[in-house]
Amino acid sequence: MEWLESTLFPVYLRPLGRPGMRWCSRWWAHAEAWVRFAACHRAWGELAAEGGVGLSVWHRDHLDPMLRELLGESGPFAACIPRSGTDPSRARHVLSPGYEVDPIPVES
């Protein structure tokens, strides 16, 4: 998604200083991240075009909560270990295990 590489990532990704915050360089392999970024992009398209307080609303209602969910201790990147400048081989990408889901019964 070009918007992520040209707008979101260069401006909003920053070093993760808080304990428990995780990022995964393979973010695109996490389905939840993909869906959340797509939703954030759609909201950006609508709210940035509004002018006025649109971008402020986008930050408050969309970007900030989305990043808290994605980067948080129980987010999709929680098990991933980011590359470090001192040891890039330490990086690890782990997909979260899904829930067990029973099939939806077919009504007759």
Rank of each mutant, 00 (worst) to 15 (best):
W58Y: 10
W44R: 00
L47Y: 02
H62S: 12
D61K: 07
E73L: 02
A49T: 03
H62D: 14
P65A: 14
L70F: 07
D61G: 08
G45N: 15
R60E: 14
S56N: 08
R60C: 11
G72C: 05
S56I: 05
G51K: 12
R60N: 13
A49C: 05
L67I: 05
E46P: 03
P65D: 15
G54K: 14
G72V: 04
R68S: 12
H59C: 15
P65S: 14
V57N: 07
G51D: 00
L55F: 09
G51W: 06
H59Q: 14
S74M: 03
L55E: 11
M66E: 04
L71G: 00
D64H: 05
H59I: 10
E50P: 05
L47H: 02
R60V: 11
E73R: 14
V53R: 05
V53L: 14
E69A: 14
D64C: 09
R60M: 11
G72T: 09
L63P: 02
L71W: 07
S74L: 06
E50W: 04
L71Y: 09
A48H: 11
G52H: 05
W58K: 00
H59D: 10
A48N: 09
A48M: 04
E46T: 11
D61F: 00
E73N: 01
L63M: 14
D61C: 09
L63R: 12
L55T: 06
L67F: 08
E69D: 15
E46Q: 12
S74D: 11
G54E: 01
E73V: 12
E69S: 14
